[in-house]
Write a protein that binds this DNA or RNA. Structure first.
Lengths: 207, 207
DNA sequence: TTGCATATCCCCTGAAACAGTGATTCTATA
DNA sequence: TATAGAATCACTGTTTCAGGGGATATGCAA
């Protein structure tokens, strides 16, 4: 009997999955939560085998929650769940210990297959997700380097139209320092001017 | 008896709403479709009172489908349905004849309230959506001015990192002309430098 | 036909951005 | 403890942008 728990901030999704899994032999409904906090609360006194976890939730999101859960309860298997086919998040969630990922628009059969697969220790990706992942890998071949917090701060201010001197004043730094960060941003992200920098930053939500 | 039809490409959402509305007095399940085509097919020989319509679907999306439906069957009330709280789409869908908009993470009560409201001719927005809409209105108050094709061309090249002289060479213009377009872009969009320009452009898909 | 918008072109100035080089301090960690 | 990275600051150029002037031609629409 696989006890399935679900964390999703959308009642209709919880309801829908509940309904899909009802009467499914071998699968038992362990419970549900609409946010990270109540999920963690549940697992203090209870447990489950597989957790279906939405990726985007108010407060702590699925990516983080996944990391926390896997640290506290390494035995619990986590299956990512999202409306969108976003390689970046899929990857992050996998890095944080998820065992697979399915889209909310997958069929009942896929859902059940996925639950069984991850429960037996497999890694499961529905076809579409797999594609997205490889697409993403392709797209992010250049593997965007991690920005430091200072760099992100400066980047955000650049995007808002502040000039180096203005930024310097705003965050109490020398204009030279701001310029250094700016140069580092250009170098790290391998772009040659502000226009490209901001385009890349906005497209990849870098700040 | 309000006959409710749902168009959504996510089985769990259909299932979830079906389950929520089951046993709800005054509401009858008219049917369901997972894409625009089968929705239109259904209404050839059938009808419904309220259509819950997902905004993002493969193929024809909710915004378009809404327009088509309202043209063919003006009497049918359409209630937008989406995971996200995106003012732009909400607005478009309303312009296309929708009677309201709710989020998929709204409660059962909200959902039922919304169905009754739009059925009696009201416009319904769940609280959060209302906020997003006014936020959006605020944001898009300045109603982004239309760019000329030349301006869009220049804008796209700026975003790709080309400098004025390079752009000039690329599209066979004087650098002065390119500069003029650039200045017009800044003026039209009411931004003060390239960073803001590109941010705005990318966020609003201006090219 | 008289505007108006678009598109083109030109000049000047000051302010930023960009590029290259170098240096100090601090902290995390190998 | 030694090293690497982050964060800080500094100087010197060159290039580009931004803002201020104008000017001409064309085509569409009131």
């Amino acid at each position: 009997m696989i006890r399935v728990f679900i964390v999703d901030d959308h009642p209709v999704v919880i309801e829908g999955i509940h309904s899909l899994l009802q009467n499914e032999k071998g699968i038992e409904w362990a419970g549900q939560a609409m946010n990270a906090a109540s999920c963690l609360g549940f697992f203090v006194n209870n447990t489950a085998d597989v957790v279906l976890m939405d990726i985007s939730m108010p407060g702590m999101d699925g990516v983080e929650l996944c990391a926390v859960m896997k640290e506290k309860y390494p035995g619990i298997v986590i299956l990512g769940l999202s409306t969108f086919n976003q390689g970046l998040y899929i990857k992050k969630m996998m890095e944080n210990g998820a065992s697979g990922y399915i889209l909310k628009n997958s069929s009942k059969e896929e859902l059940i297959e996925a639950i069984h697969a991850v429960h037996t220790g497999d890694i499961y990706f529905s076809g579409e997700v797999g594609k997205a992942l490889t697409e993403y890998q392709k797209y992010s071949k250049k593997e965007l380097p991690l920005l430091t917090s200072r760099e992100k701060e400066v980047l955000a201010l650049i995007a808002e139209g502040y000039t180096n001197p203005q930024i310097a004043e705003k965050i109490f730094l020398s204009p030279f320092t701001v310029d250094s960060h700016r140069k580092n941003l250009l170098a790290k992200l391998n772009v040659k001017n502000t226009a490209m920098l901001i385009k890349l930053a906005v497209e990849n939500k870098l700040f």
